[in-house]
Amino acid sequence: MVATLRIAEHIADGTTDVDKLAAAAGCDQDVLHRVLGHLVSRGVFAEPAPGQFALNEAARGLLDPALVLGLDLDGFGGRMAHAWGSLLTAARTGRPAYDTVFGRPFWADLDAHPDIAASFDALMGPAGHGEPDPEVLLDGDWDAVRTVVDVGGGTGTLLAGVLRARPATTGILIDLPRTVARAAGTFDSAGVAGRATTPGGSFFDPLPAGADLYLLKSVLADWPDAEAAAILRRCAEAVSRTGRVVVLGGVTPGAAAGESDLLMMVLLGGRQRTLAEFAELAARAGLAVTASGRQPSGRYVVECRPAPTG
């Protein structure tokens, strides 16, 4: 609640009395006072005088825009928080139960609420995850890469970074029309608009063919095995015989359990996958894992090439 109401920001701007904080945040003074009192007892915020609040080390974390994006109950953070209420239904049915909370499946809900969709895009972009590392290849060998296709690349943040770091490359961003429509500003800001194209479309449909590198960042974990294999198959159909499909996120070298795995199950029916599970999925799609490992940033990367035929 205090993240949504930007209480830490108001205090940082000099508003410390609870009555003025409530007025600035547009909320009830008594409720805010009681909530802040509870947080003070938990070590978040300080109350140097009755009814007067200050930031402490823990509360200063609420000045981080990335943290606030994830906690803002008016945005996608609120969707994630409430979606946990469907965990029992997901456990009983083995299917995502997001629609039991919000009335629509996940992607349909975003389509119906542009403000929530924009919040989701922001959380997935630099504001939520920082500037993406453009060094997406494990071996750093870019000599043969002329065209990069970012599959399900959102508003183009990763692709913009890749193109900015590699002036000899061109890029194609594939995502739904409502999403790629917001990519123009990303490419303009990065100074790469002349080398990026944005044909709106689904990654379940045929992809632009013949490129040297197809990127899948934070895509496959959103989907159950059948859909994830279908996305990989589209990449396998499109990639040049000497090209690569690079997966960033959604694959781990060992056990894949964790909160993010459960969240993907609740929201979408997706999952994190071990390297062995992913390799089996890739083989079904006509791809072979040729390299995997962690980059200096800690990001785990998997590279695939078209599987030998005959």
Score class of each variant (00 low, 15 high):
residue 214 Y to E: 10
residue 24 A to L: 05
residue 257 A to T: 12
residue 127 A to C: 05
residue 142 W to D: 14
residue 241 R to K: 03
residue 167 P to F: 13
residue 244 R to D: 00
residue 20 K to A: 11
residue 51 G to L: 09
residue 68 V to I: 13
residue 75 G to S: 06
residue 43 G to V: 05
residue 149 V to A: 14
residue 71 L to T: 06
residue 271 R to P: 02
residue 244 R to F: 07
residue 306 P to L: 15
residue 59 A to I: 07
residue 128 G to M: 13
residue 303 E to Y: 11
residue 267 L to H: 02
residue 138 L to S: 12
residue 156 G to A: 10
residue 297 S to V: 04
residue 80 M to P: 00
residue 186 T to C: 13
residue 178 R to Q: 08
residue 199 P to S: 01
residue 293 G to A: 12
residue 20 K to P: 00
residue 233 R to F: 06
residue 176 L to C: 08
residue 187 F to N: 06
residue 269 G to N: 09
residue 187 F to Y: 14
residue 135 E to V: 00
residue 230 A to N: 05
residue 309 T to V: 13
residue 298 G to H: 10
residue 122 A to N: 06
residue 292 S to E: 14
residue 249 G to C: 12
residue 74 D to Y: 02
residue 196 A to I: 05
residue 19 D to A: 13
residue 286 G to Q: 03
residue 166 R to G: 08
residue 287 L to V: 03
residue 302 V to H: 09
residue 53 F to Q: 04
residue 204 F to P: 05
residue 94 G to F: 10
residue 121 D to G: 01
residue 206 P to F: 08
residue 273 R to Y: 03
residue 118 A to Q: 09
residue 63 L to R: 01
residue 119 S to D: 00
residue 9 E to Y: 09
residue 76 F to Y: 15
residue 151 V to Q: 07
residue 161 G to P: 00
residue 140 G to M: 11
residue 225 D to G: 05
residue 19 D to G: 13
residue 7 I to G: 03
